[in-house]
């Protein structure tokens, strides 16, 4: 009874986390379309003689959104690359040890990224840092995308770390084919 409650909770947690990664990836995909739309706007603006100020800046923010928000999903799909020359040759506890080490380093660095990304947005707000281009966007607004994306990445790395510890992690994540 206790066990099933635990596994039901785990299952729910799993579902929530996976939805978080996928949802944020879909948001990233929408921003990818945003890049396209912004660049097309500036092309058509020139052709049809209308002017939308700041399309170049908006394309840049959308690109940042596409990159940061997809981080966790890309990790979970095993598409962030790494060198698995050594890890791939190891088995058993040696492999687990090295996986835990590299995941710990990743958790630490992702945490630093997330913390300082939020600090960037917060400081931009404090400093009234406003885009110097024609868009005049207060920069803390698009910078939130960086904070959210790196935070979801941090969650995904912690998730991986816990799965590795419980020996439930799929080892194909980020590994490469061997000859």
């Amino acid at each position: 009874m206790h066990r099933t409650a635990l596994s039901a909770r785990n299952l729910l947690m799993r579902k929530i986390l996976d939805a978080l990664y996928l949802g944020s990836a879909w948001l990233a995909a929408l921003f990818m379309i945003g890049v396209l739309v912004m660049v097309l706007l500036s092309i058509f603006g020139r052709l049809l003689q209308f002017y939308v100020p700041g399309t170049d800046a908006y394309a840049g923010y959308a690109m940042a959104g596409a990159g940061f928000l997809a981080l966790a999903h890309t990790l979970k799909s095993g598409e962030h690359i790494r060198v698995t020359l050594i890890i791939g040759k190891l088995t058993g506890s040696a492999r687990r040890g090295l996986e835990l080490w590299s995941l710990s380093v990743a958790v630490l660095l992702a945490a630093l990224l997330a913390v300082y990304s939020w600090r960037l947005a917060w400081q931009s707000h404090q400093f009234h840092d406003i885009s110097t281009a024609a868009d005049a966007t207060p920069l803390w607004i698009p910078q939130i995308l960086m904070g959210v994306g790196t935070t979801v990445l941090l969650i995904a790395f912690v998730d991986e770390w816990v799965l590795e510890l419980r020996q439930r992690r799929h080892h194909d994540a980020g590994s490469t084919r061997h000859e």
Partner: peptide, 17 residues
């Protein structure tokens, strides 16, 4: 960092740090 399997983008950031 690279050799122990840390993701490449994070490795570069780590070395910079």
């Amino acid at each position: 960092l690279l050799g122990s399997g840390v993701w490449i983008g994070l490795t570069l950031a780590g070395v910079a740090w």
